[in-house]
Design a protein around this nucleic acid. Structure first.
Length: 565
DNA sequence: GCCGTTTTCGGCCCGACTGTTTTCAGTCG
């Protein structure tokens, strides 16, 4: 936010970038900044991108909860000016001009001023700008909303389908955050090799969900579909395809680092290729494929999921880029519901579906009694279900294994929702927080740590409780949770539901550092629900996880030995 | 504000497109 405000004030662009970069580095950092500051504030300086200025601000922020610098600026400029920046096409310069010249500090004021005709008279503004601002105000919320990766995937496939029927396309690929498999996607980037850009763009514009054309030039076209999602199309020559794919896959921060490295080598990289620089003269070196581009930089082709300017360049230097987990590595699924509670399929149906998907074991984990909304299981119903599981396992005769499990609520007052003597009879005991999510950080952390210390509990499900775009994670000290998981030899879940993806990538990277085994679970409430495992795998890849880091790539026997049985 | 096996000062990624301009600033990715 400091960077946004400074940008609005017209401060030095590099300073703004330094703040923004610092904030990102801290957000992406696998260790908690709070505990670094507690132990040794000076060590902040050893983190790339954090210097004296940002480090000092971190300490003040952690100790007091606020930044005097921000408060000072907010005395001069109302916070609502930042809303102006949410309008597509409105940047800090134009917004500052509106505030300075017309005193506009909020969206409704801007709308009035546009309609009154005073905005068009400003220098640099005109009739078209006003028109686009008015349209932009209407979609400011929708335009900034990021959709679940799974939803973007659906749209992307439909658009690809549509584009396939254009005869002029020689190659087509999706780039951007979609290709990096980010949990949410802000827009789609499509790259095309063609000799006939006009025809490709015409075909693109004819896609039935295109709502408006944001812009169209000789090689680039942007449209908005279904109110929110923006789709950019870029037509490039074949010899630039790899460079363009690299460039538009990003991330922006990854590219900034890459270009910096190129400069040191006397090279220049842009979306057209890698060029050797000799004074003003540039010679094309590479660009047709991504392999070529990275090879020209003496770098490996980074998996797109890792291109976030986090650890990947260090890993490349050490030759330790993780061999990321793949969907086919998963052999079991350890979290699902049945008709015994809020699931749509019976125990038998879930078993059949899991077998059909090539899995070799599953855990049946209906929620416990406290989760009344889902008609959670009390001890009697649970034990009855487990007897059913025993019978089914007999029938399966070793060809497939069903584990007797439960998703046991961690009570608001602490402690488990079912007695130890019941839990001790199960194979796979999940503990998770469903209620009291607004408790203090200490309370929630204590509840979860307490569950990890219970000898019958094996894993914490959806450890932060967030629902992407809908509910923030509860306050929890993940460092303490991980510490407790390590000390008690417990596991953590990566819930693969596209709306959860909980743990997120930064926590996964931290868990990997702690060597805490992760379990990727579907949390399926139906047969089709089992198919979300693939989204969990993508998230795990973003966290840098290998098959070996994920417990359910191994046999159930191997998991039992992880649990010390 | 950050950074340094060319540097502790002087750099900091790079190009497309738009709208408002008559050669370019602002925005975006």
């Amino acid at each position: 936010m400091l960077a946004d405000l400074l940008e609005f004030q017209g401060a030095n662009a590099f300073k703004i970038r330094a703040y923004r970069n610092g904030a990102r580095v801290i957000k992406d950092y696998p260790d908690s900044i709070n505990s670094i500051i507690e132990e040794d504030p000076a060590s902040l300086l050893s983190i790339d991108g954090i210097g004296k200025g940002v480090a000092e601000k971190c300490v003040v922020l952690v100790e007091t909860g606020e930044l005097p610098q921000i408060n000072e600026i907010l005395e001069e400029i109302p916070r609502s000016v930042l809303d102006l920046l949410r309008i597509p096409g409105m940047g800090p310069k134009k917004a500052a001009m509106l505030y300075r010249e017309l005193g506009i500090a909020a969206l409704d004021q801007l709308k009035e001023a546009c309609e009154a005709g005073v905005v068009a008279d400003l220098k640099g503004f005109g009739a078209k700008t006003v028109e686009s601002i008015l349209a932009g105000i209407e979609i400011a919320d929708a335009a900034n909303k990021r959709v679940y990766w799974a939803k973007a995937d659906e749209t992307a496939r439909e658009i690809l389908d549509h584009m396939q029927s254009c005869g002029e396309i020689r190659k087509i690929e999706l780039a951007g955050s979609y290709r990096r498999r980010r949990e949410t996607v802000g827009d789609l980037d499509i790259l095309v090799v063609s000799e006939n850009a006009e025809a490709v763009m015409d075909h693109f514009g004819a896609y039935h969900l295109v709502e408006s054309v944001i812009g169209r030039g000789d090689t680039k076209m942007s449209v908005r579909i279904e109110e929110s999602l923006q789709v950019d199309l870029r037509v490039v020559p074949a010899e630039s395809f790899g460079a363009a794919l690299q460039y538009f896959t990003g991330s922006k921060d990854h590219n900034v680092v890459l270009r910096g490295l190129a400069k040191q080598k006397g090279l220049k990289i842009n979306e057209y290729g890698v060029f050797k620089m000799d004074g003003d003269k540039e010679t094309y070196v590479a660009g047709a494929t991504e392999e070529e581009v990275y090879a020209a930089m003496e770098l490996p082709v980074f998996p797109p999921e890792l291109r976030e300017a986090r650890r990947e360049f260090d890993w490349a230097a050490e030759k330790t880029i993780p061999d990321l987990i793949r969907e086919q590595d998963l052999v079991g699924d350890l979290h699902m519901h049945t008709t015994a509670t809020d699931g749509k399929a019976t125990l038998e149906e879930m078993v059949e579906a899991a077998q059909a998907r090539g899995l070799s074991y599953i855990a049946i984990t209906d929620p416990s009694q406290r989760v009344s909304m889902a008609h959670g299981l009390d001890a009697d119903r649970l034990l009855a279900q487990w007897r059913e599981v025993d019978v089914l396992n007999e029938k399966l005769d070793g060809s497939f294994r069903i584990l007797k499990g439960i998703d046991c609520d961690i009570l608001e007052s602490g402690g488990m929702d079912l007695p130890d003597e019941v839990l001790s009879q199960g194979d796979w005991i999940i503990a998770s927080v469903h209620y009291g999510q607004r408790q203090s950080r200490e309370q929630i952390t204590d509840r979860i740590v307490g569950a990890l210390e219970n000898p019958h509990v094996h894993i914490i499900a959806h450890p932060t409780g967030r629902l992407i775009n809908r509910r923030e994670a509860y306050e929890v000290d993940m460092e303490a949770v991980m510490q407790a998981a390590v000390e008690n030899g417990k596991l953590l879940e990566l819930n693969a539901n596209p709306a959860r993806l909980d743990l997120h990538d930064v926590h996964l990277a931290a868990a990997r550092k702690y060597q805490i085994p992760i379990v990727i679970s579907s949390d399926a409430h139906s047969v089709d629900g089992l198919d979300v495992l693939k989204y969990g795998v993508l998230q795990a890849r973003r966290g840098g996880l290998t098959a070996d880091d994920v417990a359910n790539t191994k046999s159930w026997d191997a998991i039992e030995s992880i649990l010390g049985r």
